[in-house]
Nucleic acid binder design. Structure first.
Lengths: 315, 315
DNA sequence: CCTATATATACTCACAACGAGCATATGTGA
DNA sequence: TCACATATGCTCGTTGTGAGTATATATAGG
C-alpha cells in the first residue's frame, strides 16, 4: 500500500465551481453558457467565499448577470491539471445544478442561453426517435463494439449500447443521459477535440462539443434533472409565477425529451395538489381558454416525498 | 457584488476525504470508526493519489486494514478551519459511502465496527417505535418549537418535526435520517459538544456523539443507503457470496430500521430475478431448511432500473 | 413416535397507481 | 356555420403492493 503523508503535512490544491444553469422557454430547455457556447459558467473557490454555494452564485452572476434560484450539488471530481509553468497541479471540480426562470435579465457579454439539445441531439424524442439514432449513432456504436478484440468486451459493449439507447427489447430510458454520452465518448464519436460542426455550419448528429469535460457535466445535470422531476416538484422553479397546465406539461416534456399523456398528466398534478387556480384564464393559446394556475408553495413544506418500494410490514 | 480575483490568481485549499464504511452482520448494521468510535476514517487528498476514490481507499485501508468494495460519492462541503498558527484556512471535505462485507479482516488498532444505531437510537423501528421517541425526543422538539418567539417559526418547527418524526397524520419515513438529525441538532438535543453518555456509561436516548460533523455525515450516508436499497441491488454488496432469503431480508431490515413482509419480500426478489439458487440448503437456522441463493451478477449489466413516474404517451 | 416450534412456500384478496383511449365542452378564426 | 385547437371528464385494463391465510418441511425434546 502507498504510504500516506505524515499527519500535519498539508497538500494544497485548487477548487473550481461549475454550474449547469437551466431554464425553459416555451418548450425549449436551455442551458447557460459562456465563450460561444463552449463552456459552462465556472470559477475558482476562493478564501473570500462564505460557502461553496455562495461562491458559485458570485461567479455565475458575474459571468452571466443572471441570478441563481434553486441550487443542488451534482458531483465532485479531481483531475491532474497542467499549469502554465508545466508543473502538475491538482484541481478539484465541484459541479452544481441550478434552476432559474429565463426572463430575469439579459445575459452578459459572451454569456448566452443555448438549447441543450444542441449538445445532445439524440436526447430529444418529442417528435419521435431522431433519425440519426438508427441511421448513424447506433450503427457507429455497433461498429465500435465489433471492433473489440476480446469476445467478452464485444458482448459488453453491445449490451451497454442496447440498454442505453433502447435497442432490441430495451425501451428508451430518458434518464440514461450520462451513460449514452459516455458510450459515445468511449467510442470516439463525440471526442471533444474533433471538429463537431458540419461543413456548412450545421449541427452534427453528434452535437456541439464543449471545452474540457463540460459536456459531460452537462449530461450529468440533465440526467439528474430528468430523474428529479419525477419525484420532486422542481419543474416549478423553471415556470413563471402563473401558467396553464399545458405550459407546465410542455416544460416537463422539454426536460424529459418525450411526450406525456395530457389527461393523465393533469390527473397527477391535481391529485398531488401541486397547483391552485388563480381564478383567471387566458386565451393566448387559441382554442378553449385555459385556466391559470400557480404553484402551491405549501407542498414544499407539507410533503416528505420519497417513494418506498420495500414490502413493508406493520408488525 | 463581490469582485472575484483576476484569472490566473490561485487560491489553494486543503481537501479531505471521508468514508462512511458500512457492513451488516446478522441483523446489525455497522459502521467503521476510529478513535473509540468518535470519528469516521478520513485523510487528506494528496498529490500522489491517482483519483479521489483511490485516495479514499488508501486512507481507509491504512487506518482500518479493511478494503473497500462498492464506493459512491455522498456530498462535498466546505468549512473554514483554523490551523495551528491561527490563520483561517479553507478545507473542502468530500464524503463517500462505501459498502463491504465485515468478515474480510480484523480492523486495525483504534479502528472498530460500531452498530450505527448507537449513534441514532431513534432510527431503529424494527422492534416497534422506540419509547424514547414519544417520551423524550418528540416532547423535546415540541418544547424547542414552542420556545421560538416568532409565530411563523413555531409553526414551521412543529411541521418539520411532525413530518420528520411521523407525528399526527404523518407516517414514519425511514429515509429522513438527515432531516431528523438536523432538527435535533438545531434544537440543541444532540450538540456534539455535550457529554452524550449517561452517568453510568449507558447510551443516552440521543445517541453517541462524534467528532466535528462526522455524525452528520453518517446520517447522510444512512439516508442515502436507505433510499438506494429500494431501487438498486446494493444490499448484495453487504451479503456473503451465499445466503438464505431470510438472511437477505434481515439485512434489508437492519438497514431500513423496519420490518418487511416476508412473503412480499420474496415475491419481489424473485420476480426481479435478483438471485439464483445454488442448489444447496442450510439447516443452521432451525426449522425447515432454507435454500441457499447467490446474487445474479447479470442483473447489474442487464438492467437499467430507474422508475418512471411521468404519465408518458406513445404518440 | 409425537409435539412444539421455526422456518419455507404457495395462494388469494383488495386497493391504488398508471398507461391508454373515448367523449364532450368551450373558445377562436376563416 | 364549420374547422380547429385546446380543456376537461370519465372509463378500461394491467400492474404493483400491502396484507392475510394456509400448507409444507425441517429440528429438538420428551
Amino acid at each position: 500500500m502507498r504510504q500516506p503523508a505524515k499527519s500535519g503535512q498539508q497538500h494544497f490544491i485548487a477548487a473550481e465551481l461549475i454550474a449547469v444553469l437551466v431554464a425553459v422557454t416555451i418548450g425549449h430547455p436551455r442551458v447557460m453558457t459562456i465563450e460561444r457556447g463552449q463552456s459552462l459558467p465556472s470559477g475558482p473557490f476562493e478564501l473570500g467565499h462564505r460557502s461553496l454555494q455562495s461562491g458559485l452564485r458570485d461567479w455565475v452572476e458575474q459571468q452571466t448577470r443572471h441570478p441563481l434560484g434553486y441550487i443542488e450539488q451534482l458531483y465532485t471530481f479531481a483531475d491532474r491539471d497542467r499549469t502554465a509553468n508545466g508543473s502538475a497541479q491538482r484541481v478539484v471540480s465541484i459541479s452544481y445544478l441550478a434552476l432559474t426562470r429565463e426572463e430575469q435579465a439579459a445575459p452578459a457579454d459572451k454569456a448566452a442561453w443555448r438549447n441543450w439539445y444542441d449538445y445532445f441531439p439524440w436526447e430529444d424524442h418529442r417528435a419521435g426517435v431522431p433519425s440519426t439514432l438508427p441511421d448513424l449513432i447506433v450503427p457507429g456504436l455497433k461498429a465500435w463494439a465489433d471492433a473489440a478484440d476480446d469476445h467478452q468486451v464485444r458482448l459488453d459493449r453491445r449490451q451497454r449500447t442496447a440498454i442505453a439507447f433502447g435497442v432490441d427489447e430495451h425501451s428508451w430510458n430518458e434518464e440514461l443521459v450520462l451513460q449514452r454520452y459516455e458510450l459515445l465518448y468511449e467510442a470516439g464519436l463525440v471526442g471533444e477535440a474533433r471538429h463537431q460542426r458540419g461543413e456548412n455550419g450545421t449541427l452534427s448528429a453528434f452535437g456541439l462539443a464543449m471545452a474540457a469535460d463540460h459536456r459531460r457535466i452537462l449530461a450529468t445535470g440533465i440526467a439528474r434533472l430528468r430523474a428529479k422531476i419525477k419525484y420532486r416538484p422542481v419543474v416549478f422553479e423553471l415556470m413563471p409565477s402563473v401558467f396553464t397546465l399545458l405550459q407546465l406539461q410542455r416544460s416537463v416534456e422539454a426536460l424529459a425529451g418525450r411526450l406525456v399523456h395530457k389527461q393523465n398528466f393533469r390527473r397527477l398534478v391535481e391529485q398531488q395538489e401541486l397547483v391552485e387556480e388563480t381564478g383567471a384564464s387566458t386565451t393566448d393559446t387559441g382554442g378553449r381558454p385555459a385556466k391559470l394556475f400557480r404553484f402551491r408553495h405549501g407542498v414544499l413544506a407539507e410533503r416528505a416525498v420519497a417513494g418506498t418500494k420495500l414490502p413493508l410490514s406493520r408488525a
